[in-house]
Amino acid sequence: MAEAQFRVTVGSDVESPHVVADGEIDLANVSQFQDVMAKATTGSATLTVDLSQVSYCDSAAVRALFAVAASTDLTMIVAAEGPIKTLLGISGLDRVATVVTEE
């Protein structure tokens, strides 16, 4: 199992903060993912989460993203093909947040 890595890029006045995730997001590391997203949204009403390098998300990660989408204007970047884009559609996250596909 690949360990996920998360990093935050704080936006300028024009750009929203970005969280970039790489690897797998599951019950073992979802609290770290939530903490990184909470830090990024401090003082910002928008957040972009780049999931284009994420290979797996479980239901804990989906719940964390729904929680952020409930209080923040959330944009998620995903690979054009693959399990993450499918997961966002099945879960309904694509109806409460903006999903941008990366070619």
Rank of each mutant, 00 (worst) to 15 (best):
A38I: 14
S12W: 11
S12A: 12
D35M: 05
S16I: 02
V20E: 13
T9G: 07
E24G: 03
S12P: 03
S31R: 08
V14Y: 11
E3N: 07
A28F: 03
S44A: 15
A28I: 01
L27W: 04
Q32N: 07
A40N: 01
V10D: 09
V30R: 03
V19W: 05
G23E: 00
T46V: 04
V36F: 02
V8R: 06
A28T: 07
D13Y: 13
Q5E: 13
V36Q: 08
G11T: 01
A2S: 15
L27R: 04
D26I: 05
V19R: 04
D13I: 03
D35R: 01
Q5T: 15
A4V: 05
A40L: 02
L27Y: 03
Q34K: 09
E15G: 02
E15W: 12
I25E: 02
Q5I: 13
V14K: 14
G43V: 04
A38C: 10
F33D: 00
E3S: 10
D13L: 08
D26M: 10
A2P: 15
K39G: 03
D22Y: 06
A40S: 05
V20I: 11
S16C: 15
R7N: 08
S12Q: 07
A28W: 00
P17C: 04
D13N: 12
S31Q: 09
A28P: 00
E24W: 04
G43K: 08
G23F: 06
K39E: 10
L27N: 06
E15F: 13
Q5W: 04
V19Q: 07
S44Y: 08
S31L: 09
S31T: 05
I25V: 13
M37C: 14
N29P: 08
I25R: 00
V14R: 15
E3I: 13
K39Y: 01
Q5V: 12
V20C: 10
N29L: 04
A4T: 05
G43H: 03
M1I: 04
A45S: 12
A21K: 13
Q34C: 12
G43P: 13
D13W: 02
G43Y: 08
G23P: 06
D35L: 02
F6E: 01
L27Q: 10
Q32D: 05
L27V: 12
